[in-house]
Computed example of a mutant assay.
Amino acid sequence: MMLLVLLFISACWHNTPGNAEVVTSFEETCPQFFFKETPPGIGLEPTHPARICQRYKNQYRYATLYNKDKRIPVYSAYIYNPGTAKRPNNWMVEPQLVDLSLQPEMTSEGALLQKSRATQAELWNSQAILKDYKNLTNYNRGHLNPNSHQPDLDAKKSTFTLTNIVPQFIKLNGGTWNNYEQQTMMSNTQGCKETFALVGAVPGNNYIARGRVNKPSHLWSAACCFIDNNHIRSWAIIATNDKDVVEQLTLGQLEEKLAELYNRNGISLFHSDCPRE
């Protein structure tokens, strides 16, 4: 009898979300993507969140807090480490948003449906799919964690999951936002030993795909750069998702702005050691 109990406990332990890609805690599974292993504090979490340690080729690549109701990410957290590998273009989804018992690695829609018991309806209900982003007007697929900030081909491929994507104003995505990703980040990270980035989206009042996928009202990005134990710097931006304009902010100003947008008393994006001014 005791043996049966032990086997049952062991089976349950191996099927807990914490041992797979959709996890119960970033701190326990993939804390390395956050400055001083500290995820953002309470304030950004949606009613029905999913914490995803984004896993590809049996390796965690970055972390995403996903809003299951609005089918967009709240933020993606990663380490800035740009490389020169070519841009991929094969899109993937998250199996464990369909069912926690499915594989812990992102995969294509076709592979998921062919190789598991998941149905098209279950996939459709669980997250955004490629069809949601077809035939958009003035908007396209905007990465939170951009592939250009990743070091090699596999790391870049891992950013092409729809759990890392929001509908982004096309002129912003290819304009000032792209300038920030390609030029400002490179300039601001000079002298940094390690740069932790957070990029997020504030849910808006409009949707694409007949109400399935939320169209964010704002996009934001913040970074905390570790130079040495006595020198840490930060910076931030925010943009409304209908204009090609990026506003430069301090980290503290961004946190205040997000608190207003989310109607919260306060929001903390990084560990308190990251300067707010």
Rank of each mutant, 00 (worst) to 15 (best):
D273R: 06
K131N: 15
R210G: 13
I42S: 14
E27Y: 01
A50P: 04
P82I: 00
S126I: 00
N179P: 05
V166T: 15
R87F: 09
S148K: 12
K57W: 08
Y78E: 10
A236T: 12
L269A: 02
G83N: 11
E255W: 03
D132W: 00
A85T: 06
N230F: 11
K68H: 03
N67Q: 11
N178Q: 13
P104K: 11
W124H: 12
P40I: 02
G266W: 07
V202T: 09
M2K: 10
Q32N: 14
L144C: 06
S217A: 12
P167C: 07
G252D: 07
L7H: 14
L97W: 01
T189M: 09
L261H: 02
T184R: 13
F270G: 05
G252H: 07
S76Y: 07
E256M: 14
F35C: 01
T107N: 08
P151W: 05
K156W: 02
G83R: 08
T176P: 01
A209V: 04
P39Q: 04
L258S: 09
P17A: 07
Y180H: 14
A236D: 08
C225L: 02
K171H: 11
L100K: 01
G204D: 09
A63T: 14
G43S: 07
T161I: 05
R233T: 09
K257Q: 15
T195C: 05
P95R: 02
K57D: 09
P82T: 02
I129D: 05
Y56F: 14
A20K: 11
E28G: 07
C225M: 05
K86L: 14
N67G: 08
L144V: 00
Y60Q: 14
K115M: 03
L172F: 05
G175L: 04
F26M: 07
T107D: 09
E45V: 08
K36Y: 06
S268T: 13
P31L: 02
E260G: 12
R51V: 09
E260R: 14
L153D: 00
P39V: 01
W13C: 11
N206H: 15
V22W: 02
K215M: 13
P31H: 05
R117Y: 12
E105R: 08
W13D: 07
D242S: 11
P46L: 01
F35N: 00
G110T: 09
N89D: 15
L123T: 03
L44D: 05
T24I: 01
L112K: 04
E122N: 07
T16P: 04
T240M: 09
N140K: 10
N135K: 13
E105D: 11
Q59D: 10
C225F: 00
I170V: 15
L258D: 06
A11N: 15
L153H: 03
Q32S: 15
S272A: 13
E28W: 01
T47E: 12
K57T: 10
G191R: 01
N140R: 13
L198H: 09
L269C: 07
Q59E: 14
G252Q: 06
C274D: 03
Y207W: 14
T137N: 10
P203F: 13
S126M: 01
I237H: 15
L219K: 03
S116G: 06
Y62L: 05
H48P: 03
V74I: 14
F8A: 15
S101Y: 06
N241E: 02
L102C: 01
L44M: 12
A197G: 06
D154K: 07
K193V: 00
V74F: 13
A155H: 10
G142E: 03
L6S: 13
K156C: 02
L123E: 04
C225Q: 04
V22D: 08
